[in-house]
Nucleic acid binder design. Structure first.
Length: 278
DNA sequence: GCTTACCTGTCG
DNA sequence: CGACAGGTAAGC
């Protein structure tokens, strides 16, 4: 579910709400959501830890603690919602993280793909598999760097390449399709076939789409909610994603195909294919 | 690269 | 009932 703009929206909402709060002992309704260390040790070690800052790398949310680091990945249907008091969120609650002041952070996750990792230090992200992540596409990649990265993978098709979190971190299915449509590039174009101008246009399209996504508080196709449980509004501005059969601004009908095993929406007229297999 | 698997739900 | 869903890891 959540891609970079959704995780960034949660980060921005969460930081002022939970900075400086101290965890008490977690309650695990589904221990499988705890990925590291063992659930018992996780609970033991989190108790008494204070939150210093809330950061993000790609789609990972990082809660920096006075000692160690709590990492959260929401995968498809995860939610991280803060509540002062009262009823916990109703559906698919997996982990309750209570604070000393009586407020709570709730992790819900219908499909159980998401997870939490408690790491000893930000210098060893390997237990969460984060050590291989590429640079954050929003915070750590300049236009020049992006062009260099593209040149290193000349034979890769754009869509699978941009979805590859080891290449750049943060993009997912929605924002890749929207970015490619905005700069009128076909998802199957090979990176090495782009002119310098096309590469720049792609980078600018990605930035613009991510910025707009963040400004709208993310895309709530279905499950996504921010740190206060509210929906985003970028779904109202999608040009191609989920819009098979709708008309593009050029008048052609949006098509759906499968690329890299993912549903892929594009305009067959604007995003004419120039090279690579269909 | 691709396919499958992980889960649970919605939609046609 | 099958197809599909914002993500990723593992296995060809």
């Amino acid at each position: 579910m959540p891609e970079l703009p959704e995780v960034e929206t949660i980060r921005r909402g969460l930081e002022p709400l939970i900075a400086n709060k101290v965890f008490t002992r977690p309650v695990l309704l589904f221990p499988g959501s705890i990925r590291h260390p063992e659930p018992d040790r996780f609970c033991e070690q989190l108790e008494g830890r204070r939150i210093i800052a809330v950061k993000r790398h790609g789609k990972y949310l990082l809660l920096e603690l006075d000692c160690g680091l709590l990492v959260v990945h929401l995968r498809m249907t995860g939610r991280l919602v803060y509540l002062e008091k009262g009823e916990p969120p109703s559906g698919h609650l997996r982990v309750v993280l209570p604070f000393q002041d009586g407020s709570f952070l709730y992790f819900s996750d219908m499909r159980k793909f998401g997870g939490l990792w408690l790491l000893e230090s930000k210098d060893d992200l390997s237990p969460a598999g984060m050590h291989r992540l590429g640079p954050d596409i929003y915070e750590q990649v300049t236009e020049e760097k992006f062009l260099e990265l593209l040149q290193k993978r000349p034979r890769a098709r754009l869509k699978p390449l941009l979805l590859d979190q080891l290449f750049v971190a943060g993009l997912g299915n929605i924002y890749v399709d929207e970015s490619l449509h905005r700069c009128r590039l076909h998802p199957c174009r090979e990176a090495g076939s782009l002119s310098r101008e096309e590469g720049k246009a792609l980078f600018r399209a990605i930035r613009a789409v991510l910025e707009e996504g963040i400004r709208c508080g993310g895309t709530s196709s279905r499950d996504y909610r921010d740190a206060r449980g509210e929906k985003g509004t970028f779904q109202e501005r999608l040009a191609v994603y989920g819009r098979k059969g709708c008309l593009c601004r050029c008048g052609a009908a949006i098509e759906r195909t499968v690329v890299a095993g993912r549903g892929t929406y594009y305009c067959p007229r604007c995003q004419e294919e120039k090279e690579g297999p269909p």
